[in-house]
């Protein structure tokens, strides 16, 4: 394994993400919204990639970190006067009512919240063996959902938090995303990242080499929790609202599908998967809404989109369990993606 920084593996995906953002984002207001929400989902996919891709252990629990990130960032950026007057926020802790931060400090808070929750829960979860850990992460998601859904001291409960400041410019989510991509890449080539991938290849050899699987998994889990916290908060600031249901199973399924369809093991896979699923989803959405695509109107029944995305995940895994990119990193001159 080489530690050499291969710039094209990093710059390739970054340039493609930037190109996508500007080409689609400058088209229309709707295009801008699509780009912003795609980037917010992409950051979540990157979070999953850091842990799932490097360790080979599944996580269904990252929605919990995204929830913490979204609510942490959301509650401190909602203006105090709105918090005082909203019906669903009447029971909020007083210090939360009075706490007001700008968008960027609130994103740092979201990162900290995600890292904290992941770090603490990881102390237990990472002690379990791989498969049991994967299942136990369902429990994590369930608990987070349960708490946010019913607790109106820390948030709006099952209601929505409504008046979040949205991103002002396209550049904001783009820059955040690029920073996360850089972090993800650096972790991948770091000692901990390489060690973790070695444990994925051969879990039994790791203890023999004196590697503590628990420890390296925990490091990756905490880092990916931090990124998921940011991803959740970004998603909130794109929509301008936070509601606990938005981060539950459909969100988990969507981001996991993106990662796995692209190929969980590489940064390139996470990128391709996110863009591919977004693209397919948009086309199908236009069909459901009977909008013309290249001048042709194709009508499909409502709900087909969700079926197609679920079906493509299953078919992809049956056909190529390594995803479209087969876990490879971006390389100039790589063979064209087979459709």
């Amino acid at each position: 394994m080489t530690t050499r920084l291969r710039l094209q593996e990093l710059l390739g995906p970054i340039l493609i993400v930037i190109a996508f953002s500007y080409v689609v984002g400058l088209q229309s207001a709707q295009g801008l919204l699509i780009v912003q929400s795609t980037l917010a989902l992409f950051v979540m996919v990157l979070a999953l990639h850091v842990f799932v891709g490097n360790s080979g252990v599944l996580s269904f629990g990252h929605g919990a970190f995204a929830m913490f990130g979204a609510f942490a960032s959301g509650i401190v950026t909602t203006p105090s006067n709105i918090k005082e007057n909203s019906l669903q926020l009447q029971n909020l802790y007083p210090f939360l009512v009075n706490l007001n931060l700008g968008m960027y400090p609130s994103l740092l808070l979201a990162i900290a919240a995600g890292a904290l929750v992941a770090g603490l829960s990881g102390l237990l979860l990472m002690r379990l063996n791989g498969l049991a850990a994967g299942i136990a992460t369902f429990a994590l998601l369930g608990v987070a959902y349960n708490i946010f859904f019913y607790n109106n001291r820390i948030g709006p409960g099952s209601q929505a938090l409504l008046a979040l400041p949205p991103f002002q410019f396209l550049e904001e989510p783009v820059v955040l995303t690029v920073i996360v991509m850089l972090a993800v890449y650096l972790f991948g080539i770091s000692r901990a990242g390489r060690t973790l991938r070695a444990t994925r290849e051969d879990p039994l050899a790791a203890p023999a080499l004196g590697i503590s699987i628990t420890r390296v998994r925990w490091i990756a889990f905490t880092l990916s929790g931090a990124i998921a916290g940011l991803g959740g908060a970004m998603f909130a600031h794109v929509a301008g609202t936070v509601q606990v249901q938005d981060y539950y199973l459909p969100y988990t399924f969507m981001t996991l599908s993106m990662l796995i369809i692209g190929g969980s093991a590489s940064l390139w896979g996470a990128t391709v998967g996110t863009l591919l699923v977004t693209g397919i989803g948009q086309i199908l959405l236009m069909m459901e809404q009977q909008k013309p695509i290249l001048g042709i109107v194709v009508h499909i029944p409502n709900g087909t989109r969700a079926i197609v995305i679920a079906l493509s995940l299953v078919v992809m895994l049956l056909w190529r369990s390594e995803g479209v990119t087969q876990g490879r990193e971006f390389k100039i001159g790589m063979p064209k993606l087979r459709k």
Partner: peptide
């Protein structure tokens, strides 16, 4: 004979797929 993690995620996909079919 595949990796159990792969099988788990496939079954998750099958689950969502069937939910959507039931919905339809």
């Amino acid at each position: 004979g595949s990796n159990p993690a792969t099988m788990l995620i496939v079954s998750f996909g099958v689950s969502v797929l069937l939910q959507k079919v039931y919905e339809l």
